[in-house]
Simulated assay, not measured.
Amino acid sequence: MTLPGATVELTFAPVRAGDDGELVHDWMNRSHVVPWWQLGVPLEEIRGYLAGLTHLRPWLVSAHGTPFGYVETYEVAADPLAAYYPAQAGDQGFHLLVGPLSMIGTGVPRLMGRAVLAWLLNRGERAVCEPDVRNGRMLAYCDRLGLSSLGEVDLPEKRAAVLACTRAEFDARWPGDRAAVSAVASAGGAS
């Protein structure tokens, strides 16, 4: 898919634990990822993690055919996060990371975030994420995408900032993105 105003083509493909495990393992063990994901573990543990996901849907994101991002999407009602903030029916959640440091600052990760939010907001009225409050890079990233704070919560593994974006807020900031993602999904593409 290509979002309005962008020249980069993004593809989202479901992660396959066997085929994609080595790449996800590599990224999870990078110094800019380990503190936030806490999955700097051996390859077989990553494959087990990926194979064992139930309510989280893992995606591998590529730009012009080159993988650079990992995303997990989920319905908040099925996640423990729902107990920690005033969740609304239909809230959609996400986690994401950029593997190669060379991609950070290129603008491509922001396109990934826009596509993820567009996809989620085509399914619910609000999208949320819960980065660690110490992760300044992720907090700034989410701010640039248009998410705003719902407050901080103490989760079992971290103090988190619960951030959200409504469909109306997203559409005002990124007009046309939801339609572009919907068109790809309707055509049978991985969105």
Rank of each mutant, 00 (worst) to 15 (best):
N135H: 15
A172W: 04
L23A: 06
N135P: 05
D26S: 13
A161I: 02
G136S: 14
A161E: 09
A164S: 14
G93V: 13
N135V: 10
M138V: 11
A187T: 09
D91A: 12
S31W: 11
W37F: 14
E130Y: 08
V181N: 04
N135G: 07
N29P: 04
V98M: 06
L139F: 13
P100K: 05
D132Y: 07
C129L: 13
G189Y: 03
D79E: 15
Y74S: 11
L147H: 09
V98S: 06
R114F: 00
R144K: 15
Y85V: 01
A78N: 12
R134E: 14
N135K: 08
A77N: 00
P67S: 11
L96Y: 10
S62M: 06
R137D: 09
D19I: 12
L60D: 00
E157A: 15
A63M: 01
T166R: 04
G189K: 10
A140Q: 13
L39D: 08
G5D: 09
H32A: 11
A179E: 15
G90C: 09
D91S: 11
D132W: 03
V181E: 07
L39R: 13
Y141G: 06
T73Q: 07
A115P: 04
A51F: 07
D20E: 10
A115F: 05
G69E: 06
F12K: 00
L147W: 06
G40N: 05
A168C: 06
S149K: 08
R144T: 12
G151N: 10
S191Y: 06
W27E: 03
A160Q: 08
S62A: 15
A83E: 15
G65T: 03
G124F: 02
G151Q: 11
M103D: 08
L50V: 07
P86C: 03
D91Y: 08
A168I: 12
A164Y: 00
A89V: 13
Q92L: 03
G69D: 05
G151I: 07
R173N: 01
T66L: 10
M138L: 11
L81R: 08
T54I: 12
P35C: 10
T54G: 09
